[in-house]
């Protein structure tokens, strides 16, 4: 319970944002606690796994909230507004760099989805998550953003469409083609994926 009788943990994101606009530092602390972790990881995956860039972008997006809280429109879901800003920042960065920087642990494309002995041997010891990250790196930024917002950030189709300012049909279509592409690339790791799935289900049961 706060000094003024407010429990910030119980407040919605939108209420917190309105309080931030009134220069309430506790509201900002709570908002930061809710979003900082997921934001830095979102930027990390969107921006070629570059941790420093992700950290800088996280600072920048929260600076925008501190300096321009009035840009938040009351009544709009905070989450979609926040991720639309994050998404626009990524777009700007893509445009700025134009040419994609290769990651340090890129895997040759021919090995991805190849069911031959060499590919199986090459990926035998790699984790599913790492392969997924590599596969995500191969996606164009829009499909990657839609995928991460859906599966990592747990946003609904409607929320994604609002955050990315496109139709729900476009979001679903991008998700389908991304899934189809990933299906092709991750076939070689189906066993590991199935194992992870089994562990996940077991974990839920326990």
């Amino acid at each position: 319970m706060g000094i003024l009788g407010k429990t910030y943990q119980a407040m919605t994101d939108e209420q917190l944002m309105l309080d931030v606009a009134k220069k309430n530092s506790k509201a900002f602390d709570e908002l930061y606690a809710r979003y900082a972790g997921r934001t830095v990881n979102y930027f990390h995956r969107m921006l070629w796994q570059e941790e420093e860039t992700a950290q800088d972008f996280t600072q920048e997006i929260f600076l925008k909230i501190v300096q321009k809280p009035h840009l938040y429109q009351e009544g709009r879901p905070f989450k979609t507004w926040f991720f639309s800003i994050a998404n626009n920042m990524c777009k700007n960065e893509y445009r700025r760099r134009e040419v994609r920087k290769p990651t340090s642990h890129d895997m040759p494309l021919h090995a991805m989805g190849d069911t031959g002995n060499e590919a199986i041997a090459a990926v035998d010891n790699l984790k599913f998550n790492e392969q997924l990250k590599l596969a995500l790196d191969e996606l164009d930024e829009k499909k990657r953003a839609v995928f991460l917002l859906r599966f990592e950030q747990d946003l609904s189709i409607k929320e994604i469409s609002e955050a990315m300012e496109c139709s729900e049909g476009t979001v679903k279509s991008r998700l389908f083609y991304t899934l189809k592409m990933l299906n092709g690339k991750l076939k070689a790791y189906e066993g590991i994926g199935a194992l992870l799935l089994a562990l996940h289900l077991l974990n839920e049961l326990l």
Binding site: F128, N129, L132, F151, L179, K180, L182, N183, L186, K187, E190, G193, A194, L196, L197, H200, L201
Partner: peptide
């Protein structure tokens, strides 16, 4: 196969 991939991704 796609169904399996989808379920795997949801479990990541």
């Amino acid at each position: 196969s796609m169904r399996q991939t989808l379920l795997e991704l949801q479990a990541v």
